[in-house]
Design a protein around this nucleic acid. Structure first.
Length: 201
DNA sequence: CTACCGATTGACT
DNA sequence: GTCAATCGGTAGA
């Protein structure tokens, strides 16, 4: 079974939750079947003091979910696509963790159908790609991730993530607050969307 | 109402 | 490596 992570998981400091989300599973169930993947890359968006955060300038209709309680999905659209976040912390604090990449584990054919791509590396490597592969759109904004229905995060059985395997880098694509080291990813995963410049080998 | 723009992607050199 | 398509959200007239 893929038991959903409890409410408590989402209530810590957003950076801690971001690190803890690595190695967990993203699970999606629709009438077409189940898809699941291992989270390998995330980014933390801090509260009001973070200039890259959508909630930086206060609450609007678009970002209202981020101001709600932790454990809900925040789905926003950008560049004609969707991105998925997990909201953290109690109500009123607009923090969230962007899921940037997952390693496909189950439902690969369904992902291929939705993505119209066959290469596994092209299915869910990138925040908008994984939303397409998992059939996630704005209708899931505000969804309760602790229910264990339709969309949730689960513990991967018997797998623990060694902190030494977690790499830290700057966030991708942000202009304001670009220098902050708030992107966390599995150092050894091929399914990470972007890598910092590699030293010459 | 219009104008601008982004937590991106995919096609192309 | 470079670059333009894409469209909903937001701000401003």
């Amino acid at each position: 079974m893929k038991e959903p992570l409890s409410h408590d998981f989402y209530f810590g400091d957003v950076e801690d939750v971001a690190r803890a989300m690595l190695g967990k599973q993203l699970v999606r169930v629709t009438a077409n079947g189940m898809t699941a993947g291992r989270i390998v890359e995330v980014e933390a968006y801090l509260s009001r003091q973070d200039p890259a955060n959508h909630g930086h300038r206060g609450q609007t209709r678009r970002n209202a979910t981020m101001f709600g309680t932790g454990g809900h999905a925040y789905v926003y659209s950008i560049h004609a696509r969707y991105c998925l976040n997990a909201v953290t912390e109690p109500e009123g604090v607009p923090c969230a963790v962007l899921i940037r990449a997952v390693e496909p584990l189950e439902g690969l054919d369904l992902m291929r159908e939705r993505r119209r791509r066959t290469n596994v590396l092209d299915l869910a490597r990138g925040p908008a790609r994984l939303c397409e592969a998992f059939g996630i759109d704005r209708s899931l904004d505000g969804w309760d991730l602790t229910r264990g229905e339709e969309l949730w995060l689960a513990d991967e059985d018997g797998t623990t993530v060694n902190a030494a395997n977690i790499a830290v880098a700057q966030r991708v694509g942000v202009s304001a607050g670009a220098d902050l080291p708030l992107r966390f990813f599995m150092a050894d995963s091929r399914f990470v969307s972007k890598r910092p410049r590699q030293p010459k080998s």
